[in-house]
Amino acid sequence: MVLNGFVEGVDPATGVPGRICVASVAVDRPAFDGLNLELVGAVECVTGPLAGRLSAKPEERVAVTPLLAPEQVGAGVVSHGDGEEPDLLAMDPIAFEHLVAELFRARGLQAVTTQRSNDGGVDVQALDPDPISGGSIVVQVKRYRNTVPPSAVRDLFGTVQDAGANKGVLVTTSRFGPGSYAFANGKPLTLIAGTELVELLRQHGLRGRLGTGEPAPTLVQPVAAPVEADEGFNLLGMVWTGSVALDVCALVCAGSRVLADDWFVFFNNPATPDGSVAMVTPPPGDKAAVRVGFDALPAGADRLVLVAAVDPEVNPDADLAGFVDAGIVLRDDAGAELDRLEVSDGRPGETALVLGSFRRRAGGDWDFVLGGKGYTGGLAQLVGDFGIEVE
């Protein structure tokens, strides 16, 4: 490892503003392992056993000659403070992978980039040394501008299984849609969107920005593909086994409170005022369906809650004991199933159930959180918890 320390200012030797090297040290692993860093004196260590070079008068910008300069090395040099903050979207792909590996190392993990060929879909190999929660991690890096498709997340899961790794991490400069988060739910996968990446870099003393630095648009991307020929809308189908007749409903909320009564979508109010959420005829195989435009939801809405309740007119004496093998199906525009979110089974005595909620994440992405809370008082009791007064 070679480390050069510098200051910026006017070089007294040339009179030209520039970067003046005031310290330079090189050390190999055996020499470094032989140091007791808690007790060494900094100057004595650099100029003694490490045989480094240290400016006699750094405050006067008296320079020393670097033992090795970056231009003598080529790729793999980590440098901070030079020029403006790098644009991650315009960064060289290999340099971006090196930056991601550096981020993992800054978080206390061992991390190296892989060779460009025969990498098996792995860009960075990391190892968490924690004996309890650690293990091997495969990292894929996607320098995208558009939303990462769910297929990339499925491919990462396959790579994790093939490599026998403990975890997979997908890092991107863009964002993920609900379909990606839905597939990752319950699996050893972590998705890091662009806005989260920038924040992590800053937390660990690294640098990077997305584009011009202007606030990223809060436009929410589709779950996977346009649905029913309307761009930006998604179809969430509902399936379950059992003969019980259920009403599936949706609530558009800010936190745990519905925006207003007309933002509760059910059989007597089939759509929100702006049409961003609507009950629709389910495709073959589904028992109910909700059409959602995540990018059309109001800015103040951060949660879309899906619930199910026994239809008291069809099954007045039924409960949710027969509500089993249930799932929310994410479908493409042709009606093909893309992903499926498993939800909790119903329980005897309960007549309404929170299936789960899509929640807006920092940066505009949507994540799915499994529900499971049941109610014995039916739909009226359930919606009361979300601020709706039922007469």
Rank of each mutant, 00 (worst) to 15 (best):
V77W: 00
V77A: 07
V77H: 03
S79I: 09
S79K: 11
E84Y: 05
E84D: 12
E85P: 01
P86V: 05
P86T: 03
P86I: 03
P86L: 00
D87K: 00
L89Q: 07
L89V: 06
L89E: 09
M91E: 01
D92G: 10
P93D: 12
A95H: 12
F96L: 14
F96V: 06
H98M: 03
H98P: 06
L99R: 12
V100W: 00
V100E: 04
A101E: 01
A101M: 04
E102G: 04
L103W: 06
R105S: 09
A106N: 09
G108R: 09
L109E: 00
Q110R: 14
Q110I: 15
A111Y: 09
V112C: 12
V112Q: 14
T113F: 03
T114H: 10
Q115S: 15
Q115G: 15
Q115T: 15
S117N: 12
S117D: 13
S117V: 15
N118T: 13
D119G: 12
D119N: 15
G121C: 05
G121Y: 00
V122A: 05
Q125N: 08
Q125Y: 04
Q125R: 13
L127S: 03
L127Y: 11
L127M: 08
D128R: 02
P129C: 10
P129S: 11
P129G: 04
D130T: 08
D130W: 06
P131Y: 09
S133C: 14
S133Q: 11
S133Y: 15
G134E: 10
I137C: 11
I137W: 07
I137L: 15
V138E: 02
V139G: 06
V139H: 07
Q140F: 09
V141G: 04
V141L: 07
V141D: 04
K142G: 12
K142S: 09
R143N: 14
Y144Q: 13
Y144H: 14
Y144S: 02
Y144F: 14
Y144A: 09
R145A: 13
N146I: 11
T147G: 14
P150Q: 07
A152F: 06
V153F: 01
F157T: 10
T159L: 07
V160T: 07
V160A: 08
D162Q: 14
A163N: 11
A165P: 03
A165N: 07
A165G: 06
A165V: 05
A165H: 02
K167F: 08
K167L: 06
G168C: 03
G168H: 02
G168S: 02
G168Y: 00
V169S: 00
V171W: 00
T172L: 01
T172G: 05
T173L: 07
S174H: 03
S174E: 02
G177W: 00
G179Y: 00
S180E: 00
S180G: 15
Y181Q: 06
Y181R: 08
Y181T: 10
A182Y: 00
F183K: 06
F183T: 08
A184Q: 12
N185S: 15
G186S: 12
K187I: 12
K187Y: 07
P188G: 11
L189P: 05
L189D: 08
T190Y: 02
T190S: 15
I192P: 14
G194S: 10
E196T: 13
V198M: 01
E199R: 14
E199H: 10
L200N: 01
L201A: 10
L201T: 07
L201P: 00
R202S: 15
Q203V: 08
Q203H: 12
G205E: 09
G208Y: 02
